[in-house]
Computed example of a mutant assay.
Amino acid sequence: MKGEMGNQGLVGPQGPPGLKGQKGEQGAKGSSGAQGIRGEKGEPGLSYPVQMVRIIGTRNRGRAEVYHNNVWGTICDDDWDNSDATVFCRMLGYSRGIALTNVTPGSGEIWLDDVACRGTETSLWSCQKSNWGSHNCNHNEDAGVECR
């Protein structure tokens, strides 16, 4: 005669994890999606004007010069201040400027004198100033800037 079944034993401890399997093969490349809808044509860009101001010295510090009548010339430092320098530097893409005096003198034309900017203008041409070429200066009074 067969005896009765005994009580179930205790669960044993979990075994260590098995070895990692091999990497599977890469799947087939899917098909390309449909081409998107073409966007509208944009407005033509603005042409950038010829640079009308420059610094003679280093990249951001030196004598301030302006281009007028196809000739580069200097600016007299009479009343030249940080507001004027800031407008000049803004024309070169900087955010502010510091007025310098006693810079290396230039030669040739002295184009501007008595420049009086408020500091909010986008160009020296919008500032109060004497007429182009009208001045009472020598090149030892040429204006300079440090742009930041």
Rank of each mutant, 00 (worst) to 15 (best):
83 S>C: 07
113 D>V: 06
37 I>Q: 15
117 C>H: 05
25 E>P: 11
89 C>S: 08
148 R>L: 15
74 T>Q: 03
3 G>T: 05
90 R>W: 04
9 G>P: 11
77 D>F: 07
2 K>W: 08
103 V>A: 01
16 P>V: 14
45 G>C: 12
40 E>H: 13
87 V>R: 04
106 G>V: 07
29 K>H: 08
92 L>F: 05
131 N>F: 05
121 E>Y: 09
11 V>F: 14
95 S>N: 13
147 C>H: 06
42 G>F: 04
50 V>M: 01
136 N>R: 00
89 C>A: 11
74 T>F: 00
59 R>C: 00
2 K>E: 11
68 H>N: 09
103 V>W: 00
33 G>E: 11
83 S>T: 00
146 E>G: 00
112 L>D: 09
106 G>Y: 06
123 S>Q: 03
81 D>K: 02
61 R>S: 15
8 Q>F: 08
146 E>L: 15
64 A>D: 10
53 V>A: 05
131 N>I: 00
22 Q>Y: 03
117 C>I: 05
20 K>L: 11
95 S>T: 15
53 V>Q: 02
12 G>C: 13
78 D>L: 00
119 G>Q: 10
85 A>Y: 04
71 V>E: 14
11 V>L: 15
82 N>G: 05
89 C>L: 12
101 T>G: 12
22 Q>L: 06
62 G>E: 08
74 T>H: 01
143 A>S: 09
21 G>V: 05
97 G>L: 09
79 D>R: 04
115 V>D: 08
39 G>S: 14
42 G>C: 10
95 S>Y: 03
12 G>S: 15
42 G>E: 12
68 H>A: 01
34 A>L: 13
9 G>A: 11
84 D>A: 03
66 V>G: 04
13 P>V: 14
112 L>V: 07
102 N>Q: 14
29 K>A: 13
78 D>T: 06
54 R>W: 07
89 C>D: 12
8 Q>T: 10
32 S>E: 11
104 T>Q: 10
113 D>G: 10
53 V>K: 01
21 G>S: 10
